[in-house]
Nucleic acid binder design. Structure first.
Lengths: 119, 119
DNA sequence: TTTAATAGTTTCCTAAAGGAAATTAGTATC
DNA sequence: GATACTAATTTCCTTTAGGAAACTATTAAA
């Protein structure tokens, strides 16, 4: 039996696996990337606008996810003193850097659907 | 009070939200993208190699995720009749199309870590 | 014969995610 | 005064994700 000699992982490789972990911890789940994608296309949006666009999301879930995204500096939350009050959400500059990633997610998803249907 | 008149979502927009859903359903979770990223760099790998590389994954989780990825045609599983038997996993052509997406995930994760540390 | 490696499976458990429905509180329209 | 819209919060519940530990079965080395 051959003894399996594996080289230890390179520093770069370990960093890359950590980067994947970091990104996925922020964005995993059913709704977060849909929220970010919606804000990326729609610009500034109100709570109810988001809720209607993200067909099917429960208000609690939307509220929770928005809070998490705000904590991670990806969106800002602004209360307007209209009557009744409205609350506006928009992407931070840092949040906008997700653009390329979201485009890739969309492109891959569209292509994957084609792949699956093809067979 | 102003009646809120929102245009219905464009067909394209609905398709894009669906594409995000599709992609995230396949790849959400703690380990799947790490598995795909590892196979993308490492080429063909055996079960125990993957387990060692993905530091901390439970064998049940690895086994389950590999099965799901195989069902979705992203990887292939090949049993070799070596003694003891070994099982090799590698990416399908379709699986390899995740390359760009994974690169974006890594890039964004690296940049995000810099952003957070900066402050 | 004991130990260890191969690739898992099984069982049991906890934690996290997510949904449904009701509620809150201020304002505005009918 | 009743109803509805704003943006949530609260409570309750179910489902899914994920981890720890033990176990299986084959083979090979010490």
């Amino acid at each position: 039996m051959k003894i399996q000699q594996e080289e230890p992982l390179s520093k770069e490789c370990i960093q890359q696996l950590r980067a994947i972990k970091d990104t996925m911890e922020l964005l995993s789940g059913k709704w977060k990337i849909q929220i970010m994608g919606t804000l990326l296309r729609g610009g500034t949006m109100r709570f109810m606008e988001l809720k209607r666009t993200l067909n099917g999301i429960a208000p609690k879930k939307l509220s929770n996810d928005l809070q998490e995204l705000e904590l991670n500096k990806l969106i800002t939350r602004t209360v307007k003193d209209t009557k009744p009050i409205t609350v506006e959400y928009s992407l931070t500059e840092h949040g906008k850097t997700l653009d390329n990633l979201i485009v890739e997610i969309i492109d891959w998803g569209l292509n994957h659907r084609k792949e699956i249907i093809k067979k």
